[in-house]
């Protein structure tokens, strides 16, 4: 009876896989922003070294940390990527589970407010950005629901078009960084809010981090390509996305200047362009020597030809660290210095 043989086969299959073999391949999880860089290095590493190509999962920074800090052993990942620094709570969780960490800062990523080439050239201050996006803004000394509908309502020097901004959802690291740098930076420009930050940090954060929900800000999903396409269809709209997408689509879209500084490679690298964040990866020290190739992978990542000014990650849109910081980080990374917080 073939039914019997089929079920028998299925049963065998099931038993066979429970006998898991030792892992000989690096596993990386974490941020979708770091994903393109991490995968480039993984691919190159697989080609030039004698080790297998590492597996890179795109789980988001928070999700990656959760997996990474869950414990030591075959079934836990060896490296996690992050588009923000590890939080104290995550660090504590890692420590509790016996995970020792080496931190490697790999470079910067600019966050761009862009629009279609057919739209107007824009120049904002962080204050403008906050006023356009926050749910509550101070007007004449009072905190009220955001009344601004046109850019010219905020500042007469801005164009007379409707405020319409497409951006990532709250689960995205890009959104976290944008809110933290651009919106908080803008909020601090109001003396009343600045005073609030000193007296009540929690309340200040609630105001600075809350994006308006009256249809002016449109959540466009995690896919930055989608935002770029929507901008082309609607030249009046602005989008929030990573610098690499501007870099790839410079013939169709342009980035708004912030405080007169346009989002260009050199200006982000020099720290002039204000909305940029650092990217990291974290290595599990207990897996060194257990899972083959981790040290060599870190070495490949921190080569000048990889993350330097002329390295291949720059072609992928990474903005490298200044050369002295790069040298120091390389030394610390290859020496597997332990992170303490």
């Amino acid at each position: 009876m073939y039914l019997k043989t089929m079920s028998f086969l299925a049963a065998i299959l099931f038993v066979a896989i429970t006998a898991a073999e030792a892992r000989d391949q690096i596993r990386i999880v974490g941020s979708s922003t770091v994903f393109p860089f991490s995968t480039s290095v993984a691919e190159q590493f697989g080609k030039v070294s004698k080790f297998k190509t590492p597996i890179v999962e795109s789980t988001g920074s928070g999700g990656g940390m959760k997996l990474f800090c869950a414990g030591v052993g075959q079934k836990h990942p060896d490296i996690t990527n992050s588009s923000r620094r590890i939080k104290k709570s995550e660090f504590n969780k890692c420590n509790k589970n016996g995970v020792g960490i080496t931190e490697v800062k790999i470079g910067f990523d600019g966050i761009v407010l862009g629009n279609s080439k057919a739209g107007p050239d824009l120049n904002f201050s962080l204050k403008h950005v906050f006023q356009a996006l926050a749910a509550k803004v101070p007007v004449d000394g009072k905190l009220i629901d955001n009344p601004y509908k046109m850019w010219s309502d905020i500042d007469p020097s801005l164009p007379k078009i409707k405020i319409e901004i497409l951006g990532p959802p709250p689960t995205s690291g890009t959104r976290d960084a944008f809110v933290e740098i651009a919106m908080e930076g803008g909020a601090k420009k109001f003396p009343s809010l600045k005073a609030l930050k000193k007296s009540n940090k929690k309340q200040f954060k609630a105001i600075a981090h809350t994006i308006r929900e009256d249809g002016v800000f449109i959540e466009a999903g995690e896919n930055d390509n989608l935002i770029v396409q929507k901008l082309l269809a609607n030249p009046k709209a602005l989008g929030i996305f990573g610098f690499s997408f501007l870099d790839q689509n410079a013939d169709k879209i342009k980035g708004a200047s912030i405080k007169g500084v346009s989002p260009e490679f050199e200006k982000i690298a020099e720290g002039q362009y204000p909305i940029s964040r650092s990217l990291y990866f974290y290595v599990k020290q207990q897996h060194l020597g257990v899972i083959p190739g981790i040290k060599e992978f870190v070495k490949e990542f921190t080569k000048e030809g990889t993350w330097g000014i002329d390295g291949y990650l720059v072609d992928k849109g990474l903005i490298p660290l200044p050369s002295d910081v790069r040298k120091a980080t390389m030394k610390a990374a290859r020496g597997m210095d332990t992170l303490s917080m």
Binding site: Q25, K52, I55, V56, E57
Partner: peptide
């Protein structure tokens, strides 16, 4: 279950990534 991943090598068996 971790199948949304960057995997270069072509899998050869049921337990390969």
């Amino acid at each position: 279950i971790g199948m949304v991943a960057f995997i270069v090598d072509i899998p050869r068996g049921l337990s390969d990534p």
